[in-house]
Simulated assay, not measured.
Amino acid sequence: MILKLVVGLGNPGKEYERTRHNVGFLVVEEIARRQGAVFKKMFWFPARQAKCRIGEHEVRLLEPMTYMNRSGQAVWGAMKKWRVEAGETVVVYDDVELELGAIRVRGKGTGGSHNGMKSVLEWLQTKAFPRVRVGIGPKPEGADMIGFVLGSFADEESLRLEKVVERAADAVESIFSIGTERTMNTFNQSKTG
């Protein structure tokens, strides 16, 4: 059986818990909740992990505890320790270019302006791994980018946030059951909420 790895990108610490930049954490936590899995601190590299099954696959859910800009270090460490190939690794992260409620699944690509993904790409030395981008935008005109992504969701956004997190978790599960291409066809068309 081939082990799969699902990485949610975010920042550790209470102050970042429900911020826009931590949507990746929210998605892997939703998958863990569905599977009854519990996150535990890792000692080999800076991350928290939970073990579960998605369909017939054994899956490790990972939350890097390195802060966003150094996420690649924990992802690389996990892949080496568990001997997981890049193609068996799904990275979930926020995208300010996508409207809140939108999801984009891709089989490969760049990190765009996302520093966490830039770090992952730098450490893995490949662009060929599935990723699920979760919309957190649009950034209001004139708003500071760092302040926006590290800011919390507004109360009126909470229902849409809940729905998009659930849908992103569905997309990850779909990648494992029907593959990245078919998942792209299903999830890239529509918006949640």
Rank of each mutant, 00 (worst) to 15 (best):
A47T: 01
L61T: 00
Q35N: 08
G36Q: 03
E63N: 02
P46I: 11
K41E: 10
E63M: 13
K51H: 14
F43R: 07
F45W: 10
R60P: 00
A47V: 02
R70H: 08
A50K: 04
R48K: 13
M68N: 06
P46A: 15
M65F: 07
A37H: 05
L62E: 03
R53C: 12
A47D: 06
M65A: 10
K51D: 15
P64E: 11
R53M: 13
F45K: 14
T66N: 00
F43M: 06
A37I: 01
T66S: 03
E56G: 11
P64T: 02
P46F: 07
E63Q: 11
E56V: 09
I54L: 15
H57K: 11
A47N: 06
H57L: 03
V38W: 03
G36N: 05
F43A: 09
T66L: 08
T66K: 06
R60W: 15
G55F: 08
T66G: 07
G55L: 04
P46Y: 07
Q49R: 08
G55W: 03
Q49D: 05
A47E: 05
P64R: 05
F45G: 14
M68I: 00
A50S: 06
K51R: 10
M65G: 00
L61M: 05
N69R: 01
T66Y: 01
T66C: 05
Y67F: 15
R53W: 03
L61G: 09
A37T: 04
M68R: 00
N69S: 08
L61E: 04
Q49T: 08
W44C: 07
P64C: 02
P46D: 09
E58M: 05
C52H: 05
F43Y: 11
Q49M: 14
L61I: 01
V59I: 00
V59M: 04
F39C: 10
G55A: 06
V38I: 10
C52A: 08
L62K: 09
R53H: 09
R60Y: 15
E63F: 06
F39N: 08
V38A: 10
C52L: 14
V59S: 01
W44M: 09
R48A: 08
Y67P: 04
R70N: 13
W44V: 02
A37L: 01
Y67M: 14
L62P: 03
E63Y: 03
W44S: 13
P46R: 12
R60E: 11
I54K: 01
V59F: 00
Y67E: 14
Q49E: 13
E56H: 09
K51F: 15
T66Q: 02
G36P: 02
M42Q: 14
M65P: 00
E63T: 04
L61N: 05
W44Q: 10
E63K: 10
K40G: 03
K40E: 14
N69I: 03
L61P: 14
E63S: 04
M42W: 12
F45C: 12
A37E: 02
R60F: 15
T66E: 00
Q49S: 12
K41C: 01
I54F: 05
R60L: 15
K41V: 10
K41F: 04
K41M: 08
Q35Y: 01
Y67N: 11
W44H: 13
L62A: 08
V59A: 02
E63G: 05
A37W: 04
L62Y: 10
V59Y: 00
L61S: 08
